[in-house]
């Protein structure tokens, strides 16, 4: 039940973030500082989120050589190709290969 509540709340919040300026505030100016801060939200959250996905709920960090190699190669491919599918294939392949060798 609380899981459904979370989905509904996230849905309402997501809709509002898309709608607010279109529905209500189209004529109002957004403070420049807030717009600039917003630009850094994406990289900051993504950086934190990637690490968080490699951490257990108990706080144990599961970042070893396979993870670092996989993410590092994925980042390079993403930078060069800007293609999410190539990035995914590279990251997973490197992760599997390094994990197999390291064991």
């Amino acid at each position: 039940m609380s899981q459904f509540l979370a989905i509904v709340l996230a849905g309402i919040g997501t809709y509002l973030s898309r709608a607010i300026f279109i529905v209500a505030l189209a004529d109002r100016q957004f403070p420049a500082l807030a717009l600039r801060a917003l630009e850094y939200v994406a990289p900051a959250v993504m950086g934190a989120l990637i690490v968080s996905m490699l951490t257990t709920a108990g706080g144990e960090v599961l970042i070893g050589l396979p993870e670092l190699a996989g993410l590092g190669c994925a980042a390079m491919v993403a930078w060069k190709t800007r293609n999410h599918i190539y990035t995914l294939l590279t990251g997973m392949t490197v992760f599997w290969v390094v994990a197999a060798i390291a064991v």
Binding site: E67, A75, W79, A99
Partner: peptide, 20 residues
Amino acid sequence: GWNIAFAAPVLFTALLVTAI
């Protein structure tokens, strides 16, 4: 055994890097 969940941080890395 494939640890496919690792695809999630990889995809977020793709999102992160392409937005830089």
